[in-house]
Every structure is written in structure tokens, then in C-alpha cells.
């Protein structure tokens, strides 16, 4: 396959940045999107150019490091797929592909396609945890959990914090991420004592970071590689309203 890439290049946080066009020849349809960028980078290095910086780690769709907006869609148009698990067979030969970093004020660009997602860490630090008195793990069945709650909590817990929800949201809102964490902990018995304070603290931190407000467009859940459902946001709103009373 031969492709034309339009890639966002930005030398550092203070650089203005620009779109740069690259031709990539002899791409195998079996390559992942990141492998295709690896091939381009090897050629750039051989030519003495600066390789394109992009985040990646596990390359098996579970770490949440990779993420770029491909042709205007976070992680590309393939549903429920991270960029590393997106394969070139989904693109036509001769295609022109636009690649941009996540765009959000709380996610400043570090270099090229790499953004700083520390804002998510600070939201977690605000309350996305359970304070547990130290001790050995309890027996598995000593605290019963309803199957429905366990399933919903697990669905929410699959969030990998990649930030695609923010990138896709027309409002730049981090509601789906925050709601996934609040739902995950708030549905389980261990999360009950801090349920109200957690929702309040995390939502307030989210707003403090400069993320936009949720208008329930549903763009987040549509691009989420883990398919975190929209009803997590309703749960977050319910917990937050209860805590704000």
C-alpha cells in the first residue's frame, strides 16, 4: 500500500506546530497503525530527519498510552479499537490520512502526537481510590456483590484512561473518564463509605483542570476503545447531585 500522511509536527510545548505531509510506500496491510508509523520513522531517521513522536506501550490495546485522532476520529473509525490495534487493512491503497494529537487545553502537546494526560492522574488523586485499613485480603465470598452490580462495575473498570473521550467530545469534556472511575468504585461495597465525597471531589477536580461540560452528545462512548457506556455519566451525575445536597 502507498499512503499519504498529513501529520501534526510540533517540536515542543511552546512551538506553534504545523501539519506536514509524508509519503509512505510499501505499507503491508497486516501492519498495525503504529507499525506503519515505525516504518515511516525509520525512514525519517535514515534521512537524518526527526522521527514523529507518539505515545505507545503495550501495543495490545490495554495500556491506554497510544492515541491519536485519525481522519478526525479518535483512535480511527474502527469501533472499540485502540490505535495500536487498528490495522492498515482498514485503509484503502492510496489513501490520505490525517493524524493529529488529542486536542484539549488540559492535554497540552508535549511533542508531535504526544500529549500530557496528567490531568487524568490528578482527577484520580482527588478521589478515585478506596481508603482501606491495611490487612490481609478478605475471603472472596465474605462480602456479597450483586451480579448486575459486579458486571456494571467491571464494565466501567475496563477504562484504560486513554483520553479518547476527551478528544472526541465537541465540548472537550472528561465526563466519561471520570464517570467510569466513579461508577467502578461506587457500585462495589468497598467504595460505599467514600462514595459521596469521591464523586464531589473528582467532578470538582475535573472542572478545575479546564475540561468542558457534558452535553450528552454520546461522541465519547462511540469512540471509547473499551465501550464504556453513557449511563456511567448518569450515575456520576446522580452521585454528584446527592453529594451536593
Amino acid at each position: 500500500m502507498n499512503l499519504t500522511l498529513k501529520v501534526w509536527r510540533q517540536n515542543g510545548p511552546s512551538d506553534e506546530g504545523r501539519m506536514v505531509t509524508y509519503k509512505v510506500e510499501d505499507v503491508s496491510p497486516d501492519m498495525s497503525f503504529l507499525e506503519m508509523l515505525d516504518v515511516l520513522n525509520e525512514r525519517l531517521i535514515l534521512a537524518g530527519d526527526d522521527p514523529i513522536a507518539f505515545d505507545h506501550d503495550c501495543r495490545e490495546g490495554i495500556c491506554g498510552m497510544c492515541g491519536m485522532v485519525i481522519n478526525g476520529v479518535a483512535h480511527g473509525e474502527q469501533r472499540a479499537t485502540t490505535t495500536c490495534q487498528l490495522h492498515m487493512r482498514h485503509f484503502a491503497d492510496g489513501a490520505e490520512i490525517t493524524i493529529e494529537p488529542w486536542r484539549a487545553a488540559p492535554f497540552p502537546v508535549v511533542k508531535d502526537l504526544v500529549v500530557d494526560r496528567s490531568a487524568f492522574d490528578r482527577i484520580i488523586q482527588a478521589g478515585g481510590f478506596i481508603s482501606v485499613p491495611a490487612g490481609s485480603a478478605p475471603d472472596a465470598h465474605s462480602v456479597p456483590v450483586k451480579k448486575d452490580d459486579a458486571d456494571a462495575a467491571f464494565d466501567a473498570a475496563t477504562c484504560i484512561g486513554c483520553g479518547a473521550c476527551v478528544a472526541a467530545c465537541p465540548n472537550g469534556s472528561a465526563s466519561l473518564f471520570t464517570a467510569a472511575k466513579i461508577t467502578h468504585l461506587g457500585l462495589l461495597p468497598q467504595g460505599q463509605p467514600e462514595r459521596d465525597s469521591r464523586a464531589k471531589a473528582m467532578v470538582e477536580q475535573m472542572d478545575l483542570e479546564g475540561f468542558g461540560g457534558c452535553t450528552n452528545t454520546g461522541e465519547c462512548t462511540a469512540v471509547c476503545p473499551k465501550g464504556i457506556p453513557l449511563d456511567t455519566i448518569a450515575r456520576m451525575n446522580a452521585d454528584y447531585l446527592k453529594a451536593s445536597k
Binding site: 478526525g72 486536542r103 487545553a105 461540560g213 462512548t221
Partner: peptide, 26 residues
């Protein structure tokens, strides 16, 4: 909400963002 949204995304996407959620009304 619109002002917060504008502040949350000062740099726009170059590619036209395609809606992935099927909600024309939205």
C-alpha cells in the same frame, strides 16, 4: 457550556471531525 467548550479546545482539529454517535439532533 459553549464558552467552556471553546476554552477546553483552543486548538481545533485540522480534519473535519466526523460524528461517531448517530445523533443528528444533538
Amino acid at each position: 457550556l459553549a464558552r467552556r467548550a471553546a476554552q477546553a479546545r483552543p486548538v481545533k482539529y485540522a480534519a473535519k471531525r466526523k460524528s461517531q454517535a448517530n445523533g443528528y439532533a444533538t
